[in-house]
């Protein structure tokens, strides 16, 4: 099995398994498609649960859409190791598009401007290597106690409640929770960039 979905890293054995599975998907082999679908479905669904504005039916529709798209485009994947992140970026973009459809026109344009399915990669490869679970944990630790930290803890660390359920529990609007999660992701990005740039100039 190709490891637990979204585990921190894939071992060599897992990599071989992943290559075999993705080759199967490219050939349209249903057993391989089924295994990939069932393995990654929970992570894709979880990502979409971070968009509090989407209800369960909408998330379910999007999951199907994400895999349809991914299976069709898997031939474009540069390396098997990139599969996790690639699949999740499809899911995030589909989620954002769905939010855009629900939002006002003004917001639609803004989102539209930020859609980035096929855009060039402006973030250096080295940045991705810096990104690991301990960096993210440190960042969560360093957040001041407050609603953002609590939201991040509930959604990412405990990983049980959907963003919509978190909004209900905390008694705030749905978009507030989505925004807190987005803000935290922005912090990770910033930290990533700072780490990379600093390292580059260190003697």
């Amino acid at each position: 099995m190709a490891g637990a979905a979204f585990s921190e890293s894939l071992t060599v054995t897992d990599r071989e398994e992943l290559v075999r599975l993705l080759d199967g998907v490219k050939r349209g082999d249903q057993a391989a498609c089924r295994q990939v679908y069932l393995t990654w479905r929970p992570g894709v669904l979880r990502l979409l649960e971070g968009f509090a504005q989407l209800d369960a039916d909408e998330r379910e529709d999007l999951v199907q859409e994400v895999f349809t798209r991914a299976f069709r485009a898997v031939g474009n994947l540069k390396s098997p190791e990139a599969f996790d992140g690639w699949l999740l970026s499809i899911a995030r973009n589909r989620g954002l598009s769905a939010l855009a459809r629900k939002a006002s026109r003004h917001e639609v344009r803004e989102r539209y401007a930020q859609e980035q399915d096929d855009a060039a990669e402006l973030i250096p490869e080295s940045a991705r290597l810096e990104l690991d679970i301990s960096m993210v944990r440190r960042l969560i630790e360093s957040l001041p106690e407050g609603p953002e930290k609590e939201t991040v803890r509930l959604f990412y660390v405990e990983g049980e409640l959907s963003a919509r359920e978190i909004a209900e529990r905390m008694g705030v609007g749905k978009s507030a929770v989505t925004m807190r999660l987005e803000r935290f992701r922005a912090r990770i990005r910033r930290q990533l960039m700072l780490d990379v740039l600093k390292r580059r100039w260190e003697p």
Partner: peptide, 27 residues
């Protein structure tokens, strides 16, 4: 931050790491 957030790339990797904080078993 908004500028960095709009830069393409890394999104999937950030999500991958975030989701691995509470890994999920295959469905």
């Amino acid at each position: 931050d908004a500028f960095l957030a709009a830069l393409p790339g890394a999104d999937g990797d950030i999500d991958r790491v975030l989701l691995s904080l509470a890994p999920r078993a295959p469905s």
